[in-house]
Amino acid sequence: MTSTDYQYISYEDSLKVLKLPYRQGRDRRQFSMYILLPDARDGLWNLAEKLSSEPEFLEKHTQTQEVRVGQFKLPKLKISFGFEASDLLKCLGLHLPFGAEADLSEMVDSPLAQGLCVSSVSHRAFVEVNEEGTEAAATTLMRLMQQSMPRDPPMKIDFVADHPFLFMIREDLTRVVLFLGHVLNPLLGA
């Protein structure tokens, strides 16, 4: 993905953070994709450690206004992952919905609800970034544009993701992270 548009990019502490807001749906939720690009080509694992150990890390490194962009290159990527989660949930102590004593009557509107239990739980995730934007799960989302142009900052910021980076999709009001991953070799997607 390349762009000459204004983007939400912050740059401090040897880290660039790109925020790509998705179009807001009918409710109040606000989803965004974040690309966290360390300056150091081998800085991915240090960044991951900071992100997991400092609760306000992303808030401290997020731009609230769009800035002028110089070079802007984000590789195409398509990542999908799935796994059967029943055994994992049972290991974490969640046994009730899987057994005969399960009561799913508030989830299922049927007289047969008393006899139901969970037989398996599967998880699938899908994220794609291409020239048109990003897609996550089965929902296509687009970047918002402001009606009036913001004032030009003194310089343009480059954002070229040509080395390992982290990405996440987050609901910004609750700060709940829905997807989190990393790209080790962005040049493979070219």
Results as ranks from 00 to 15, higher is better:
P75F: 01
K78R: 13
G99M: 11
I79Y: 11
L58S: 13
A136L: 01
A100M: 08
V118C: 09
G82Y: 03
V183G: 07
E101Q: 15
F57T: 00
L184R: 15
V183P: 02
V176M: 15
R68A: 12
I9F: 08
V160Y: 04
R28G: 14
L47N: 04
P154F: 05
S122I: 02
L15W: 06
H95V: 09
Q114N: 09
D152H: 11
F72M: 13
K90A: 10
L74A: 11
K60N: 14
K156N: 13
F167L: 04
R29K: 15
A40K: 09
Y22I: 00
L166P: 04
E132T: 09
P111D: 12
M142I: 00
L36S: 01
R68Y: 06
S86K: 14
A102P: 07
Q147M: 09
A137V: 06
H123E: 00
H163P: 00
A136V: 15
E106P: 02
S86Q: 11
L141W: 08
R68T: 10
A137I: 02
V127N: 06
M33F: 06
I169V: 15
F31M: 14
F165E: 03
L88A: 14
H123K: 01
G43S: 02
G70T: 06
N185C: 10
L18E: 01
G189N: 14
S119C: 07
D13Y: 08
